[in-house]
Design a protein around this nucleic acid. Structure first.
Length: 337
DNA sequence: AAGGGGTACAACCGCCATCTA
DNA sequence: CTAGATGGCGGTTGTACCCCT
C-alpha cells in the first residue's frame, strides 16, 4: 500500500486553473479519454500533476456537470441522505445527477449546516440541540447576578428577550422530549422513557404563547391522554408564531428530524415541501411533526399537497414514515436499511 | 471610497482501498 | 504475498467576491 506521490513535485503548477489550461485538458480528454491520470499532464502538455487534472475534470470541466443553485428537491435529498449516511459525499452525489461530491460538500458546509444550527439542530446528529437549554439556567443566573451586583434592574427589553429565550428553550426541549418518547417502539408511554405526561403538560402550560395564541385546553388534554396531548402539541408546532422561532423565515422549507423506528436507524431528517407561498406568517404554513406522536402521517396538513407520494400510510402499522416511495425503492436505501 | 469581515467555492492535502506487477 | 502505483474520498485551506460600516 504505497503512499501516493504528492503533487508538490518540482515545477508543477498549483492554484487556480487558467482558461488555457482548462481548454488543453478538455481537448485532450475529448480526443483520447483521460486514461492514466498520471500520464495525462505530459501528454496534454499541462504543467500540473495528474491528481490536479483529475480533480479539475471531475469537479469542474466534465460536460455533464449541472451548475447553479441547488433546487429544493436536491436540498431535501441531501438532508435526507446525510441524516442516514453522514458525510458520504460521493454516495450522496450518486443520487444527484450532475452534482459533484465536492459541490455537495461545499453546499452542506456553507448553507445547510448553518441553517440547521440556526434552527437549533445539531447538524451531525440531526437532533435538536439541548446544550443551549442545559446551560440556560446558569446563563440566566449569571446575568441576574451581574445585574444584582451592579444594582441595575433589568430593563424591559432585556427582560423580554430573556423571557423569549426561556420560552424558546422550553419549546426546543419539549420537542426533544417528545422525540425521545417516540423513539420507544410500539408504545406512546412517555413514562417508559422517564418522561411523564404531566411533565410535558407542565412544560407546555408554562409557555405563554400557548395560552395566548392557541386553542389548547389543558384539562381536556389530561382527560384525553397522550395522543390528544400530542395532537395539541402538533398544533403548537404548526403555529406560525412557533415557526417563526423554530425556523428561519428565510428558509423556503421547514425542517424536522424524524425517527424511523422500523429501520432501526439514526433519525431521519428531511425538509418538507411547504405549501403555497412559503409564508411562515400564513396559517397554512406548517412544521411537520418530528415524531409519529406529534401528528398522524395521514394528516394532509403535513404532506405536500402537490405530491401525494410524499406520504405513506400510518406510522403505527405498516410503513414507517412519510417518505416518498422511491426512497425505499432506491438501492442505496435498501443497502442502508 | 476604503477596508474589514463574512461567505462561497475551487483547489489542495493526506489518508485509504484497490489494482497490478 | 508484497510493495508500489493509482484513483477516490473527506477534510481543510486559500482566495475572490460581496456587503456593511
Amino acid at each position: 500500500m504505497g503512499r501516493s506521490p504528492c503533487c508538490d513535485e518540482n515545477g508543477l503548477k498549483k492554484g487556480p486553473w487558467t482558461p488555457e489550461e482548462d481548454q488543453k485538458l478538455v481537448d485532450y480528454i475529448q480526443k483520447h479519454g483521460h486514461g492514466s491520470w498520471r500520464a495525462l499532464p505530459k501528454l496534454a502538455d499541462l504543467n500540473r500533476c495528474g491528481k490536479s487534472c483529475r480533480l479539475r475534470w471531475t469537479n469542474y470541466l466534465r460536460p455533464d456537470i449541472k451548475r447553479g443553485k441547488f433546487s429544493q428537491d436536491e436540498e431535501q435529498t441531501i438532508l435526507h441522505l446525510h441524516s442516514i449516511i453522514g458525510n458520504k459525499w460521493s454516495t450522496i452525489a450518486t443520487h444527484l445527477p450532475g452534482r459533484t461530491d465536492n459541490e455537495i460538500k461545499n453546499f452542506w458546509n456553507t448553507h445547510l449546516k448553518k441553517k440547521l444550527i440556526q434552527m437549533g439542530f445539531d447538524p451531525m446528529t440531526h437532533q435538536p440541540r439541548t446544550d443551549f437549554f442545559d446551560s440556560l439556567p446558569q446563563l440566566i443566573a449569571l446575568a441576574n447576578l451581574r445585574d444584582l451586583m451592579e444594582h441595575r434592574p433589568l430593563d424591559e427589553h432585556a427582560m423580554r428577550l430573556q423571557e423569549e429565550a426561556v420560552q424558546l428553550a422550553k419549546l426546543q426541549y419539549l420537542q426533544y422530549l417528545l422525540q425521545s418518547a417516540a423513539s420507544i417502539p410500539s408504545t406512546n408511554s412517555y413514562g417508559q422513557n422517564g418522561i411523564t405526561d404531566m411533565e410535558v403538560l407542565n412544560l407546555l402550560s408554562s409557555i405563554p404563547l400557548i395560552e395566548e395564541n392557541l386553542v389548547l385546553n389543558s384539562s381536556e388534554l389530561e382527560n384525553q391522554g397522550s395522543n390528544h396531548f400530542a395532537n395539541a402539541n402538533s398544533q403548537l408546532l404548526h403555529h406560525p408564531s412557533v415557526l417563526s422561532q423554530l425556523s428561519d423565515p428565510q428558509v423556503p422549507f421547514s425542517y424536522q428530524p424524524s425517527l424511523n423506528t422500523e429501520m432501526g436507524q439514526a433519525p431521519f431528517l428531511t425538509t418538507m415541501p411547504s405549501q403555497e407561498g412559503n409564508n411562515p406568517s400564513d396559517s397554512s404554513w406548517v412544521l411537520p411533526s418530528p415524531t409519529p406522536v406529534l401528528a398522524t402521517v395521514t394528516d394532509t396538513s403535513i404532506s405536500n399537497p402537490g405530491d401525494a407520494s410524499s406520504t405513506t400510510s400510518s406510522y403505527g402499522g405498516g410503513t414507517s414514515s412519510y417518505w416518498p416511495e422511491h426512497f425505499f425503492e432506491d438501492p442505496i436505501m435498501h443497502e442502508i436499511s
